[in-house]
Amino acid sequence: MPTTFPFQVAPLPLPTPPERQLAIFADVGGLEEYYVLFQNYGFGGTAESWVEHIETIIEEHQPELLEELEFEEGGHTFVAYAPSQAVAERFLACVLPFFGTLPRLQKYLSQADPGDFFA
């Protein structure tokens, strides 16, 4: 199975609503190198910042996917809910090219304008 770092995918305990079968999450508070990289480029690096950037990436590359995901705001953990494994896999295929490694994230952040983001 290919790596999903920095994300993990886990089924939610039953009963769950159909749109929240799986949680896609990342412990943003425990990823110090990611936080520092966000900060170096003028971004927050918080879970809210991750949501904002990930929504932007998905909107640009797979906008229809946004209709199938639900994002949770707040806390030290990035969380997106997916209705199926197929949707989770599409999320990972879209986002990992930008978030999967520090060099990839650095390339993305170096091209993003901090003025376009709130968090």
Rank of each mutant, 00 (worst) to 15 (best):
V79T: 07
W50T: 11
E59A: 10
E73R: 04
F5E: 14
F25E: 07
G74S: 12
M1W: 14
C94K: 02
A82G: 11
A93G: 15
Q62N: 15
V87L: 04
P11A: 11
M1K: 10
V95D: 01
E68R: 01
Q106V: 10
G44V: 06
L14Y: 05
E48G: 08
F117P: 00
S84M: 09
P17L: 07
Y108M: 07
P13I: 10
T56V: 04
R20T: 06
Y81M: 03
G115W: 01
A112C: 09
P97R: 02
E67N: 14
P103R: 09
E67L: 13
F117V: 06
V95G: 01
A47E: 13
Q8H: 05
P103F: 08
E19V: 00
F71R: 02
A23I: 14
L69V: 14
L14A: 15
A82E: 10
G45T: 09
T77S: 05
A93D: 15
A93R: 13
F5S: 12
E70F: 13
P13E: 14
L65F: 09
I57V: 15
Y108L: 12
E19S: 07
A47R: 00
H61D: 15
F118L: 08
V79Y: 06
F43V: 09
F118D: 11
K107D: 15
V51M: 02
F118Y: 05
S49A: 15
D27Y: 08
P13A: 14
V51H: 00
Q39G: 01
G44M: 08
G100I: 11
Q111H: 03
E89M: 09
E48N: 07
F7T: 13
Y41Q: 04
G75W: 05
S110L: 03
N40I: 05
P63E: 13
E64F: 05
G100V: 14
L14D: 10
E89G: 12
L65Q: 07
V87N: 06
G30N: 14
R20K: 13
P18Y: 06
K107N: 13
G42H: 01
P97Y: 03
L37A: 10
D113G: 01
P114Y: 05
L31S: 12
